[in-house]
Every structure is written in C-alpha cells, then in structure tokens.
Design a protein around this nucleic acid. Structure first.
Lengths: 332, 332
DNA sequence: CTGAAAGCGCTTACAG
DNA sequence: CTGAAAGCGCTTACAG
C-alpha cells in the first residue's frame, strides 16, 4: 500500500479487526497475546508500513527514550570521541540522542541551549563540561531534569553536586613529566589549554611532578585548543634555548609546537622533546610521531550514558603514556 | 518555588486564574492577549519554573521542530564539519537535532538506524552520504519522511531522487592536478578513499585533468579514510622512484603519506609533492604545511538544513586550492 | 486473552 | 480578548 498518510495504531487495529490496545501490546512485546492474533497484527503493521510515533509514546509514558548531549565544538577530538561513546551506548540501548552545541560561554547562549535541550519528558541530558561553557551549562540545568556530566577534574564542587565521570589525567600528566625528567631534562615546560574551573588535572599533575622533583617550575604557557594556538605558543618556546622539553595539553597543540620547532630549526627530539595528550588517530603520523597520553574518551562517553540511565555498563580505561619518536634524552 | 514536579500549562493557568489556552497563547506569542494578563501568565510561568513539553506540542501539532542526522563516524573531519553546519543552522532556527551513527553498511545496522531516526512526527532526516553506508541509509528512508542529503557526487541517481547538495570537488581535483602538472611533474598519483557509489568527483577530476593533459594515468591507490591507511599507501608510493606528485582524497590520508615519505627519506616537496583535500585545522601545521583543497563542509551542512525545512538560507562556498609548502617544482 | 475508558500536555478551531 | 471542547497517537490500569 502506498499513498496513505502515516498510519496510526488504530488504522492497523481496524484493518486487522482488533482493538488498538492489542496492537499496542504486540508493539511492546507484552505477554498474553494469542500467537494467532499477534501474527495478524504484525501483518497489518507491515501492510500499512506503520511506524510508532515516539512522541505519542513519550507523552503517554511520561518519559521518552531520548537524551541530549550539551557540548561545545564537536570538531575537537576529545568532545567528538566522548560524543561517540555516548551515542554508541545509547543506540545499543535503543535510545536516541540529541545534540546541542554551546556557541559561547555567555549566559544567553547557555540559556538558549538549556531551553532547547531540557524537555521535561526527556530521559535526561549529558553535558560534556571540559570547558567553561560546559560547566556553566551544567550548573544551569533546571532541577527535575536528569543529568550526568563528563568533567575535566574530579575534585571540584561540580563533581559533588552532579553525577559525573572524569578521566584521571592528573596521574598521567605526572607520569609524562617524570618520564621527561628521567630523560635528563632540567625541567618541563607546559602548554595549557583553557581550563573549565581554574583547576586542571593535567596542569596539577605536571606541577606536582616538577615539585616533587625539586625542579624549577616555569610558568605554564596559556594557549587555546587549536594547532594554530599551539604554533603561537611554540614560537615563543622555540626562541628560548633553555627549553628542552614541552608537555602540551592536547595533540593539536603539540602539532603546532612541532611546527614551530621545525621552523625555528630546533630538531625534535634531538634539541627539544614534545609530548601531547589524547592520542588522536593523527598523532602517530606527525613528524616525528608523537609521544602522547592515550585518553579513553569513548569509554568515558559510555560511562556517562550508564550513569544517566542505569542501563548498560562501561568503565573507561586508565590514561596511558604512549612513547613514540618525539621524545628523547636531553643533550649534554 | 521548588519541590514540585514538572508544572503543566494547567498548573500555571490555575495559579494565575486563566484558562490553559490563554497560557498556550502567550507561550506561542499569539496576538490578542491583553498585555495585563500576558504579564500575569509570564509571572506564573516564572514562578512555577514551567517548561513546555516539546513532546506534547509535537503530538498536537502533528509535526515537531526536530530533525535527525544520519551519518557514519563523526570523528572524521568532513562529517564532523557537516554536522556542525547542520546543527548551527538548526539551532538558530529553534530546531533540535538528533544524531544517529551508522556503525556499518550492513542491512541490519542501516535498518536499526532508520527505525531509531524516522519518527513520523519528526521534521525530517538529513543523511550525510559520503560513503556507502550513508547512501544505503538514504535509499532506505521510508516514504512520507522528509529527507535531504549531503552527497559525494552530483550526477548520481540519488541526486535525482532526493533533495540533496554536494560540494563540487571535481573541478577542484582537476585544478589541483593541473597545478601539479604545471609544476613540471610528469604525472600525478592518486590516493583514493572508499567511494559511496563507485563514482567520486575527486577521482573524476583527477582523471580528466590527466587525460586532457595527455599524461600517463597510474592506477589510483585504494585507501581508507585514516592517516594509518594513508601511511600504508604512502609506503608503496615512496618506494617507487617514478612517483613525484601525489594527490590524496583527504588531509588525513595526506598526513600518512607525508609520514611514509619522510620515513623513506623522500623529502617533501624537493623529491615528492603532496596535496590533500579538506583543509582541516591541522593541515596548515603538518611538516611541511600541506597544500590542500579547502572544502566548505559547514556551509554544506547549513544548506542541507535549508533544503529540508525551507527555513534560513545558505550556500556553501566553492572549493579552493590552498597552496602551502608541500608542493614544489619537479626535479630535473 | 482482549476491549472500553481515561489520560499524558499540548494546540486548534469554535463560541462568546 | 478569553474560555469550553475535541483531538493528536499512544499507554496504563480496569473489566470481562
């Protein structure tokens, strides 16, 4: 049959000669429907190409199987990978996922995102709060809405107030820093990305490793998220002959630093060692291949879903230092 | 007020002493509500922290302001950027966007995605069909569902059957190829990504430029989408001393090729020239910075939204060759 | 095992 | 300018 409008549950009921609630029952796999009538109903569904209205279902049940994730720029690797984990877990549990991106950290943009995302019948919202915009959105979620968050750092107030997960990158940053120190570098410079709440596990880890090694602590170089911004930071670092080891808050930043070093004639790793964070699919193919910290964003995303819905289960794996060609012994 | 469940339109009506339809009217900005009562209603909404149920609204209107985009792996730049364009356009028009990713190109995965995405009351679906999975999903959309697609190539059957947009990268590939030829290269090798339907604008453009130059046409090297797969292709190419110019179907592939060339001691561009496609934010910071074709995926995404809803307007800008350091004159 | 009733929270004509 | 009625397409008790 073709040419008809969207069929409803009543249409198939009429066609098959049962009541619409019987159709509802077979749709929902309720027990206690005679096999014969079940088959007839299934036939009617197929014949009319019936598809249930999720909207009607959600309204009558009072809760829908759909959630929305609030995040900024999904073009950045960490967010994209987290989103991917959420989506995978959601899809396999039969949830649909909405996405709403935060264009800026201004109150107005935050509010607009909230209004678009926080439907009272939604299964909830997951906010990826790796940056200030995300944290502000998280704090602005109206009460009564289920919420789970992926946070940058584990010991913030937000971690107390909301159900949340975080990648423990503090230890990983400390490990990476110590690794560099053990290679004979006098100290390690740090290129930081913007922080969500003033504290960052990566920065803390770097700082504490330096501290416990009794090593001079250079001021972190504040950067953004992009290769471009890493490049700018890298130019400053390249000009300083004292700099022999650089830890970067993500691989994109590291790429920019690599570029700047190369341009300035500072060989990597012969003259400077560079370490990143994330282990993007690209990083193994940088020149030279990047030593970096692998972060399980996909696992983290899955965890978020579990946290929100209590369905499925997942634990993100621990951060891990991946040693490649961009790090080496300090020159004598 | 706090502690209450989600307030409904009737709750605020009761509180303010009007009928629920009056509340509905102010919610929807209908004219013909006395300013005084409008203010009272607004007050009630604020007091109860009322948020409208989109689900109820969609059910009664018969159509919701939400669409879903079907795509594979959003971790790849082209898809992520297209999604971003769609989301931006949608958000500013007050639509919410769902996302459903295609895990594989098998019928079962396609069907699952369709079932999750094609709600009869949805505003429609946008499918990003740059690959086979996408094209199959597009073709499987049930009739009666509004659909728009981002396609790989403009002259396919799908382009006839569905409202769709495409980036005209054929001309750009031809331009890039000619550019390389003009630099004195005897021919240009091509590293291809998987094609959605057997034809690809990029491949065609490359081929036609070679043809009209009367130049020998090497077989394209079939690769995937990832840097890793570009690296494998690059190793083969690097081993062939005849190869002096390589065009790659995307920047990730080009990164892998750069890596392989570097490893094999083939200097870029002194010994081989390499060109990519996409102009990702990373490509300007490769070693050397990559000559590539800039593709306006974000604009394309916006166009998709316009096509689907007839709201907003957008035209993607033309592909453009961006010349950077990875290309140079052929050796003599 | 199956049907008649009521309701989910809105919107859309229709009256007044 | 505002209210009473009906309906969107489902599900959830409640009868039988």
């Amino acid at each position: 049959m073709t040419g008809h409008q969207n069929a409803s549950i009543r249409d198939v009921a009429r066609l098959v000669g049962v009541s619409h609630q019987t159709v509802s029952r077979v749709l929902n796999g309720h027990p206690g429907v005679k096999e014969a009538t079940r088959q007839r109903v299934l036939g009617g569904i197929r014949e009319l190409d019936y598809r249930p209205s999720q909207v009607a279902r959600a309204l009558s049940r009072g809760r829908s199987r759909s959630l929305t994730v609030i995040t900024s720029d999904t073009t950045l690797y960490g967010r994209a990978a987290t989103l991917r984990g959420i989506e995978e877990a959601a899809r396999s549990a039969g949830y649909s996922v909405g996405i709403c991106v935060l264009e800026s950290e201004q109150a107005q943009a935050i509010q607009a995102a909230i209004d678009l995302s926080c439907d009272p019948t939604s299964a909830g919202v997951i906010v990826i709060a790796y940056d200030l915009a995300g944290v502000r959105a998280l704090r602005a979620i109206p009460s009564g809405i289920q919420v789970a968050a992926a946070l940058e750092v584990t010991d913030s107030d937000d971690a107390q107030r909301f159900s949340s997960v975080t990648l423990d990158d503090r230890a990983a940053a400390a490990t990476a820093t110590r690794y560099l120190l053990d290679l004979g570098h006098r100290t390690v410079h740090y290129v930081a990305s913007p922080t969500s709440t003033g504290v960052s596990g990566r920065t803390e880890g770097w700082r504490s490793a330096l501290q416990s090694a009794g090593t001079p602590m250079p001021p972190p170089v504040q950067a953004g998220w992009s290769p471009e911004s890493g490049y700018r930071a890298g130019r400053a670092l390249a000009a300083d002959a004292e700099v022999t080891a650089v830890l970067c808050a993500n691989d994109d930043l590291a790429l920019g630093v690599l570029h700047a070093m190369h341009e300035a004639g500072r060989a990597v790793p012969a003259s400077v060692s560079v370490v990143g964070f994330d282990d993007t699919p690209q990083s193994a193919h940088f020149t030279p291949p990047l030593t970096t910290v692998r972060l399980d964003f996909v696992g983290l995303g899955r965890e978020c879903f579990t946290l929100l819905t209590n369905e499925g289960s997942a634990i993100a794996s621990q951060p891990e230092l991946i040693v490649r060609g961009s790090t080496g012994a300090a020159r004598r």
